[in-house]
């Protein structure tokens, strides 16, 4: 929010749910030299279609070119550009953290503060889970690091546009809507 020029943008791409479509999308990005930060794929409510949520690096290429090139793929049905400030973005993190002795209770407390969960308990390690805003995941990851993260897995974000709820006048005042 403090950064006026975001370095990434999320594209929500609805595609036909057929074999090879993900390969078409990813090879297009490779072929044109676009950078993918993360990518998540799953069927939508209609099993004929899948939604690919791609977080792209927009410092090196224009979103407009990426979107237009993507849309040339015959199996791409719809593309929504999601501005981070105008969408709900969620991601899930799993981390195995060294936590023996005193550290153990500190890690448990930290994860509790973030509303995360302890998913697995070992003699000297804990596996913790946090689902939420990607920035919060970054924060927890940073705070856990001093204890020693031995395994880390993040899903890549999924996103949907934020719902129109407030009066447009009010939203304009924040300078976000356009």
């Amino acid at each position: 929010m403090s950064n006026p020029r975001p370095t990434h943008q999320t594209l929500s791409v609805v595609v036909e749910n057929r074999s090879g479509v993900l390969a078409r999308v990813s090879s297009l990005f490779a072929r044109r030299g676009y950078n993918i930060i993360s990518l998540a794929v799953a069927p939508t409510d209609d099993p004929a279609f899948s939604r690919i949520t791609i977080v792209i690096d927009i410092e090196t290429t224009s979103v407009e070119q990426m979107t237009k090139q993507l849309f040339k793929l015959v199996n791409v049905i719809k593309i929504t550009e999601l501005d981070p400030s105008d969408s709900v973005e969620r991601e899930l993190l799993l981390a195995t953290v060294s936590a023996s002795g005193e550290a153990r209770s500190q890690v448990v407390e930290l994860v509790g503060l973030f509303d995360g969960k302890i998913e697995d308990v070992g003699y000297s390690t804990l596996t913790v889970m946090l689902a939420g805003d990607p920035a919060r995941l970054d924060d927890l990851e940073e705070l856990l690091r001093p204890y020693g993260i031995t395994e880390l897995q993040r899903t890549g974000r999924v996103a949907l546009p934020r719902l129109e709820r407030q009066a447009p006048r009010l939203r304009n005042a924040t300078g976000k809507a356009s």
Binding site: S62, E64, Q65, K68, Q69, F71, K72
Partner: peptide, 8 residues
Amino acid sequence: IDPAELGK
């Protein structure tokens, strides 16, 4: 006819 050519 190809939108991707406009502004490429």
